[in-house]
């Protein structure tokens, strides 16, 4: 019974572990580009969570067998994995890269304005500018 439960849930736990690795990179590192990498790791782990929810053991990818033309007995027996999470994640990946590029562009502009992309150095420069005014 316990092993059963483990086998049925371990996928989610590993995904959560990966999610937390990304989250840890995001909040513990000061370098802005490293933070964006962490965010990407987090994001990919969320995608994995969705896809694992759509998986059916023994299923096949949701592309209709035999071009959808009935296919008789054999095609009736085929079990397909759930296509809905695939659609949601497919678009999310492309939107993810688009938002990542905005983040990178911001990092580049910060580098040009402050000469660094390290969070603590930016904070120090900000504090010095405020003290100077």
């Amino acid at each position: 019974m316990r092993l059963d439960f483990f086998v049925s849930q371990y996928n989610y736990w590993v995904v959560i572990f990966l999610m937390m690795v990304g989250f840890y990179i995001l909040i513990s590192r000061g370098n802005l580009i490293k933070k964006i990498v962490g965010l990407n790791v987090f994001q990919t782990a969320v995608f994995m969570l969705y896809i694992s929810m759509g998986k059916i053991t023994g299923g096949t990818p949701p592309i209709l067998v035999d071009g959808g033309h009935g296919g008789g007995e054999a095609a009736e027996q085929v079990m397909y994995s759930n296509p809905l999470p695939h659609v949601l994640i497919l678009t999310a990946i492309v939107v993810g890269i688009a938002t990542t590029s905005v983040g990178l562009a911001l990092a580049v502009r910060i580098k040009e304005a402050y000469g660094t992309i390290e969070e603590d150095e930016i904070n120090r420069i900000e504090a010095e500018t405020e003290a100077g005014e």
């Binding site: 759509g54 299923g59 096949t60 592309i63 695939h86 994640i89």
Partner: peptide, 9 residues
Amino acid sequence: FTVMDAVDV
């Protein structure tokens, strides 16, 4: 993702 049948993804 391929192992989990999400070939498009």
